[in-house]
């Protein structure tokens, strides 16, 4: 996640990371917080999917509880 800011910043890739990079350079608090919120949401959902995938693949986890 952190990598996207740096690469998009350095190579000027037009992406969310670049937007975030620009916002950090300009110290735009609200923009930073909102983009970070979206990214964290993506991160959390991805983690959730991974956990669900584990349960789907490994019956021992599924039957616990």
């Amino acid at each position: 996640m952190g990598g996207a800011i740096v690469t998009e910043g350095i190579f000027n890739v037009p992406g969310v990371g670049n937007k975030l990079y620009q916002a950090v350079l300009r110290s735009e608090g609200p923009t930073i917080v909102s983009i970070v919120s979206v990214l964290v949401l993506v991160f959390v959902v991805a983690n959730l999917l991974v956990d669900l995938l584990y349960a789907w693949l490994d019956p021992r986890i599924r039957y616990d509880q």
Binding site: M1, G2, I5, L20, V24, S27, G29, I32, V33, V36, L39, V40, F43, V44, N47
Partner: peptide, 19 residues
């Protein structure tokens, strides 16, 4: 844990004290 290191740091460093 839900907060990746860099993203979290971005938000925290926006606080006036850290700036």
């Amino acid at each position: 844990f839900a907060l990746p290191l860099i993203l979290g740091a971005l938000v925290i460093t926006q606080l006036p004290f850290f700036r």
